[in-house]
Design a protein around this nucleic acid. Structure first.
Lengths: 203, 203, 203, 203
DNA sequence: CATGAATGAGAGTTCATTCAT
DNA sequence: TATGAATGAACTCTCATTCAT
């Protein structure tokens, strides 16, 4: 996916077109989520969407292009899920806990989103990087805010933000995506992680 | 990769055969590292290895098979790098710090290993899972040992191990793989992460 | 191009329609001239013409049909250019010289016409054949007239006409279409060819 | 056919391979000759050759590549046919006559060669140009030789060579390729053209 | 007449795998 | 064991043409 710098948006000019494009995007989310990028096929996407094969190219330039569009979509979905999850919280630590809890719940319900974003590392690295950098920055801002509020240490920066993000992502992988019988609930995981985050591991 | 539970090892009977197999494995590491699993081709691997295309199947059953073998190889390499890095440490927290520092250095020097292991999530999920579960267990054991030594809290378990592992992996991604000008050194990153781990983020 | 003997002229009924058809024809001349028949696309033609894709079929039955119409157009253009070029001449040999000179100048200025007509050999052989047979006949008539005027041999016929036409066409290809630095001018070429034609090559 | 400057020859390493490549080339000559470049299909070529579709790409990089190889082949065939035809002649004018006669006979028997070379103008212009420039140069040399022998005028050059070549090519098109009932024989055509060439058309 | 979305047959090309030598 | 030719399923993408609005 040598992202040609130019991206033709292929914006539909009619309502009917908009609907078809949406159907394709939804079908692609399922297809990519289930089979992964390389196993996925355009013809299967159009079949799922109930449109002709050729129609695909009315709305997307290539398999890569729809994947890229989808990653953007999903990236937004993840971020807004996080926003929603922390909306009611005010305490900086509670915010982090809510964010993780929200993420775990969201990931459980939308495993395909997790997969698509993660596969982007190999299919469209730029999108992948952009996704995590954006989230990393948001976390860093929250840490700064926490410091300002006097609740967190004042020397927290990018490194800590990435550490926290990694924590969350791996907990998501382990307890939301791979979730198995006997595993702790999202709330329990979030609680434990929050304690770790707040106090560290020292006795 | 419908991993047929049975794996034919295809152990070479002669010294010459062993060498050819090794050449293929090395070539595959470069090829998969550079182009990723799906872009990689058997013929390119054999070309790099300097053997005939057909010879590939004397030593490996399939493209998947060599990838799997490689992931195992790399997984071992990562683990033994970690072991080496912490060999001289005794203090539980220092051990964690050394482990991360070692990992960051190792990842910087072997970015292809990082890539291959990570791509396994989509090519051979079982290997991927096995890799991280093994590492997770080792970390959990170290935490238990830390608790026993009275240096760490006694309620640390799998959740904390995965959190710690995620921290490390993402710091590796950000500061070893994506490493860019002006970034902190592996030691600085390891130090900051260690403080976070030890004390948490509370003021 | 299985030229169904029947050709639906699709004559526009309104002035507006006539204009749209003209726009399509002009756009097609540019498109076919630049990219050739097979690389050319209807959608590119309509884009150049500034009309909707679907409108194309209001005026032409198919891609072949517009090409055929175009060849007819161009064939007429070439012929009338020749007619104009020789209008003032009366001497039979001077007429041939003027015809070639005119053709060379015309071809230099309308290279796309040359290309379209020539490609017709593979796209619409019938038009191609008709084009050259018509021209061949005209030349034959001029030779007859020259004989009648006592200036040319009386045994000149179709063979000589085709020989003369081939001469002219290849000189056009070489000195008008492929024209390169240092080449003789159209007039010089026409003069040399005329001498050859008149006297032959014998010492 | 944006002829990438680099051409991988794909030279077969075994006798078997050489035979397969030859079969493909022969099948392609028929296919391109019958249906033209754009109507021709790789799968039809391999079917004619009796090999698997994929084998095509063992020997040629693309449809373009085999066409290019073919044009080279045919170009050589035409040239050596001409060489053979004039081998026994010594008189400069007789040589030209023999050349045309030979060409007409050759073209009658290998109409597909004529077609393939001519279509190259639109498929692979470089080959087309190279073909006619080479021939043009040979003719020019023969004219020079004729002048040296005192049989032809001494001022004959490239222009006359191209004029002569055009003559021959168009006579070939008309009397060898389009050949129809009642047409003069190749020998008659060659004789008439030779007279024209020698004496011109003046009375 | 104009519009642009929808259609689907068809093409070229790739490459993991097999097989004869 | 080594070689490289042979295989063919499968895939992405194009585009002339049709159709509903």
């Amino acid at each position: 996916m040598d992202s040609d710098t130019i991206e033709s948006p292929k914006v539909p000019r009619t309502e009917r077109g908009r609907k078809t494009q949406r159907k394709l995007l939804d079908a692609a989310a399922i297809e990519f989520g289930e089979r992964g990028f390389h196993e996925a096929s355009i013809s299967s996407i159009t079949r799922r969407a109930g449109v002709a094969l050729g129609s695909f190219y009315t709305y997307f330039d290539s398999k890569d292009a729809i994947f890229r569009a989808l990653v953007l979509d999903m990236s937004d979905a993840v971020k807004s899920a996080a926003r929603d999850a922390i909306a009611d919280e005010t305490d900086p630590l509670a915010i982090e806990r809510a964010a993780l809890g929200g993420f775990l719940r969201f990931a459980s319900e939308h495993k395909e989103i997790y997969r698509i974003i993660d596969e982007a590392e190999f299919v469209d690295p730029e999108s992948y990087r952009a996704h995590y950098e954006t989230i990393g920055e948001r976390i860093a801002q929250r840490l700064k805010a926490g410091a300002k509020a006097g609740v967190m240490r004042s020397d927290l920066g990018e490194v800590e933000a990435w550490a926290l993000m990694g924590m969350n992502v791996f907990l998501g992988l382990r307890y939301a995506i791979w979730n198995r019988g006997g595993d702790p609930t999202p709330e329990d995981v979030a609680k434990a992680a929050n304690t770790l985050l707040a106090k560290g591991i020292e006795a």
